[in-house]
Design a protein around this nucleic acid. Structure first.
Lengths: 202, 202
DNA sequence: GAAGAATTTTACCGTCTGGTCAGCGAGGCT
DNA sequence: AGCCTCGCTGACCAGACGGTAAAATTCTTC
């Protein structure tokens, strides 16, 4: 199972995944075509299928890598830290991910929007378990009077919704703000900091 | 331009749009096929194309109806009302729409996610203008000291993100909450009320 | 109930899509 | 140099796709 043997394998697999991310995130799984991915990658379609057995497999490889990266900031929320600071750090890191990895955010959003047909297990499994763990931490903080009383899981949903919105609905955000405000993120960060501080401070 | 002349025309156009909403919202534009829509509608594919000139036209008809419905609650936000109550009402109505019209929410999300290729004009036009108007109202409330100081447009983004999240990421929300909590909405409403109250109260 | 219009179906077309296959070429090893 | 594996290509296929044409059916109106 040692996948990428040679240098050329590693390079081309990476090129393909990069192109596939570009196309899948913009079109969804069914909307994307192997020809599009091949063109973006600068490779021929049969060559794609030399490295991956099918369109499905390319998509699966992307999603497999993604969930780990995506949940890393939540994993790093420290039960020993100062509650509000921990949550604000999480919010900031998640917002940074929206800015720096919007395609990954959209890939994920596309998948979940369409009912997570290729990811259902990961959501009810790893994801649900991690959230359960962190919700318990938050519950502890609240019980200790170090954080305002909120529903822990809905708090996490709120963080996801608010931060990912800036990646997933980018065109809408920019369309509404107009050309005078070319980068929504600095203002978004101030706004979200204020929102969560006021919501959670005791 | 009086479209639906006979009863049968009106009924079949409606059947088709209902089926198209089902399919487009679950698959996106490119992912949906006329055969799928025809099957859901219980009509033959050529019969679909008797009522609508093309796949594009069906999609356009859906989106055209949608934006009006979608923005109605924001339009109804009353500049003469009590600021916090007006905003909480808006949040509640928007959350109700997520619960009662999740397919419409997902149709919209799919479109925007993929760069709003068939809706760009409406976003930078009508939508941006309406938000500008309402942002001015909010700015007035803040200046009068009747609402906490927040960025008006990012406040509106927050309302959209938080409420639509429950429709667009439904499988994720339910997957994380688990089967013990079959209806996320009552808790979501309490959570969002608390969030916006704490955020906005002076 | 016949005429004529509105609706629906059958059969079909050209294009696109995911995927296959036989072979060609390039690299590395002895 | 010769061999052999790895990497790559062009031609192709079967099915799905959006859409069309014309005939068949149903509905309305007199």
């Amino acid at each position: 199972m040692t996948r990428p043997r040679t240098r050329i394998q590693r390079r081309n697999r990476e090129t393909i995944l990069e192109a596939a991310l570009e196309v899948f995130s913009a079109q969804g799984f069914r909307g994307a075509t192997l020809d599009q991915i091949a063109e973006v990658a600068g490779l021929s379609k049969p060559n794609l299928l030399y490295y991956f057995p099918s369109k499905e497999a390319i998509h699966a490889a992307l999603l497999g890598d993604l969930l780990d990266i995506w949940l890393q900031p939540l994993r790093e929320m420290d039960p020993e830290g100062e509650p509000l600071a921990e949550i604000l750090t999480y919010v900031r890191r998640k917002l940074q991910m929206s800015r720096d990895m919007p395609r990954e955010s959209r890939l994920f959003a596309n998948e979940v929007l369409q009912g997570a047909p290729r990811m259902g297990a990961a959501i009810t499994g790893d994801l649900a378990a991690l959230v359960e763990t962190k919700a318990a931490v938050i519950r502890g903080w609240i019980a200790a009077g170090r954080l305002a009383d909120v529903h822990p899981k809905h708090l996490i949903f709120s963080i996801w919704a608010l931060t990912q919105h800036y990646a997933d609905f980018d065109v809408q955000v920019r369309g509404v703000l107009g050309p005078a405000e070319p980068d929504p993120y600095p203002e978004a960060e101030r706004h979200l900091e204020r929102l969560f501080t006021r919501m959670l401070a005791v």
